[in-house]
Design a protein around this nucleic acid. Sequence first.
DNA 1: GCAGCCGATGCAATATAGTTGCATTATGAT
DNA 2: ATCATAATGCAACTATATTGCATCGGCTGC
Lengths: 146, 146
Amino acid sequence: MCKECNYYTILTSSGLEPTENRVRVLEIIGNSSYPLSAMEVLSGIKKTHNINKVTVYRILDLLVENSILERLSTGGRAAHFGLAPNENHVRHPHFYCTRCGRMDCLKPESMTVNISPLEHSFSGAIDRVEIRVDGICKDCLEPVSS
Amino acid sequence: MCKECNYYTILTSSGLEPTENRVRVLEIIGNSSYPLSAMEVLSGIKKTHNINKVTVYRILDLLVENSILERLSTGGRAAHFGLAPNENHVRHPHFYCTRCGRMDCLKPESMTVNISPLEHSFSGAIDRVEIRVDGICKDCLEPVSS
DNA sequence: GCAGCCGATGCAATATAGTTGCATTATGAT
DNA sequence: ATCATAATGCAACTATATTGCATCGGCTGC
């Protein structure tokens, strides 16, 4: 997903200690081509290093608070996490397969959205607009080949 | 939310038994101006009638499957449920207040979305596009008045 | 009427995702 | 080295949702 990002530097430039666990969480999400759930991050790291699930949750919260990661809701139960939009990563919508539960990134240019009517009329504060397309992915549509 | 809807008829015309519990679930969601969580539906009904939470969950699932209700994800943990788009209810985006956790309906015309680029390039099947605006609502922004 | 069936509901137990409190360990400053 | 603070681990817990199985209630055929 991101070859231009130095995860260590991302942390330090946000004023966060670049601990091994934080770098690992950020790496595993940054190197994934689609957003990951907390459990996917946990088991990904556990393949090579010991880490506790609470630590993963706390790091994910911390990175979301610092706008390094973005928390995405799925049609399912678990939130998924991807790199937050920044100069290297344009904000983009996501696709959620209701059959296999996998989440994918869609190209930013796959849709156009104009929220200026809302911005002019809305009396609260707008942080972000999350767009999720639900459906069935290519792999789940295709008949199983033998 | 809907004065044109006869909840009893909505059920029967979908081939579902219009049981008291089903009508009550549908009424409480249909009469709300914003989507409700399963727990809100449960406690709403419990004010006047006995009902089990499992029954509520099962009815919600059933009504979503039959496209009578729509399941909306929030930034929080619990899914919320509102009437599905139909001839009386145009599909519209929702607002989620990250401070108080309340969900609100936004006017359909508050934004314009064009997904035709996606439709032409996407190789899976698209069911629906869910749009959620996250931020802080008017009430939570205002200083508390004494 | 009533025997039998089936869908709807209830209840208890369980699953899943995430959180909290507190103890322990690691890190950096002096 | 000592101390303060931040980060992590562990166990228990909460909230949300689901499953398995028992029971209830209404309808059908007789």
